[in-house]
Design a protein around this nucleic acid. Structure first.
Length: 225
DNA sequence: ATCCTGGTAC
DNA sequence: GTACCTGGAT
């Protein structure tokens, strides 16, 4: 397993944070007035889905389905047709209704305990981390494919195929975001992954992290050979 | 470790 | 037609 020094983590985090302050994307769910309901539902809408597509959809969705109760009462076909433009609409409909039922059975309160949160239907490691970060305000990584790509390019590749079980990547992500600007650092990494550190044709020349980046340095040396 | 699920960008 | 997008369930 690759060892990463604390100095390198701090340098990476600071560059991400400074880049985010200027270049961070604006999304409706990043405003502070979003309640826990919107926060959790938004994370489910974002699964395997581009953020820009969810943004175009956001206001309309929450005006039709403003709270957990409205989802438990929702007409299933109506909800499905509503979610169809986003993709994965059958699965997402079932997940939202099951989750709403589970939370309404708990008097509409989302559990406080991390283990209990992850037992909720449709809530896995990623959404549980999002709740911990955005609802509870405790640092946790939004470690999706995008963050994994940024971390791996900068620090070095993981060994396991599945992000969620790769200890190196998990440890790295937790170390990077464990600071008093955890939300901004998380969003900064996700934004960088979508805007510059794209899967295909990354825009390394514009990247504030290229100086310390394994991927960029590797490409530079290849060109020189 | 593998399956599922669908719109979108390329 | 392929790979990707703020993964969860088994």
């Amino acid at each position: 397993m690759i060892r990463v020094s604390e100095r390198r983590i701090t340098s990476f985090r600071n560059k991400i944070y400074n880049w985010y302050l200027v270049n961070g994307r604006i999304f409706p769910w990043r405003t502070s007035d979003a309640d826990t309901y919107r926060l959790i539902v938004t994370e489910i809408l974002l699964q395997r889905t581009r953020a820009a597509n969810v943004a175009a959809f956001y206001d309309d969705f929450f005006s039709h389905y403003p709270d957990w109760y409205s989802l438990t009462n929702a007409d299933s076909e109506g909800l499905e047709s509503f979610l169809r433009p986003l993709g994965i609409w059958r699965r997402r409909t079932a997940t939202l209704v099951n989750l709403a039922n589970a939370i309404m059975e708990m008097d509409g309160r989302v559990p406080h305990d991390r283990v209990e949160i992850e037992k909720l239907p449709g809530v896995g490691q990623y959404v549980a981390n999002a709740i911990q970060l955005l609802a509870a305000g405790t640092p946790a990584p939004l470690l999706d494919a995008g963050m994994a790509r940024v971390l791996e390019r900068y620090f070095g590749p993981r060994t396991l195929a599945d992000i969620r079980y790769d200890k190196y990547l998990q440890d790295l992500a937790w170390r990077v975001v464990s600071c008093d600007k955890a939300i901004e650092v998380n969003w900064g990494i996700l934004d960088l992954s979508a805007v510059l550190c794209k899967n295909r044709e990354p825009l390394c020349s514009q990247c504030p992290l290229k100086k310390g980046c394994n991927y960029y340095q590797g490409n530079v040396s290849e060109r020189l050979v």
